[in-house]
């Protein structure tokens, strides 16, 4: 990992559709070197995947997301890892983190509607062994995701020329 790798990661995180030629010009290395470095970053699973940030609300998709917090009794020898792995297997779980504070695990869950999310939590998550308590927060509106602000702002007026 050197400065060029970091720059490639920054550029790809922002726009994963940049081609090798373009990336080469941007980073001052050859296209072959770009391809080689990216392949290596993919192999090492530093690049996990190439995805798109979608404003689902705008797309008219009625999916509902919720943040679920769980109190979990850790297991001897494994702590939270084994239970976390079981939870992570559900497709409905989009994100899962171990956190500090009153709760231990935090999930982001999506479903077709509120009932769907509630059913998933009550039928699949809450009854699991070692889950002591759940708290469900339905997401009402997303303002910013993955560093992308969903506010539409008019830019301030700029002069056509200035020195």
């Amino acid at each position: 990992m050197d400065e060029k790798d970091l720059l490639l990661l920054h550029l790809l995180e922002e726009n994963s559709r940049l081609g090798a030629e373009e990336l080469a010009a941007m980073t001052e290395i050859s296209p072959a070197d770009v391809k080689c470095r990216i392949a290596e970053l993919e192999n090492e699973r530093i690049i996990r995947r190439y995805a798109t940030v979608v404003d689902w609300e705008k797309a008219g998709d009625g999916e509902v997301s919720a943040i679920i917090e769980l109190k979990v009794s850790p297991e001897r020898d494994f702590g939270y890892d084994r239970i976390a792995e079981r939870i992570a297997r559900f497709n409905q779980v989009r994100a899962l983190r171990l956190i500090t504070g009153a709760y231990d695990l935090q999930l982001v869950v999506t479903g077709k509607n509120m009932q769907d999310v509630a059913r998933f939590v009550s039928e699949h998550i809450a009854p699991m062994d070692r889950i002591r308590e759940t708290a469900t927060h339905i997401i009402m509106k997303t303002y910013k995701e993955n560093g992308d602000s969903f506010f539409e702002r008019e830019g301030a007026e700029r002069l056509p020329y200035s020195f």
Binding site: A156, R158, L159, P160, Y161, S162, F163
Partner: peptide, 25 residues
């Protein structure tokens, strides 16, 4: 560049590479 300034202001869809300031807020 007064002449250019007025001309650019009267036109639509101008991309300005004439500005000596960052485009970032």
């Amino acid at each position: 560049i007064r002449k250019f300034f007025d001309l650019a202001l009267s036109m639509e869809g101008v991309i300005s590479l004439g500005v000596g300031e960052p485009d970032f807020a």
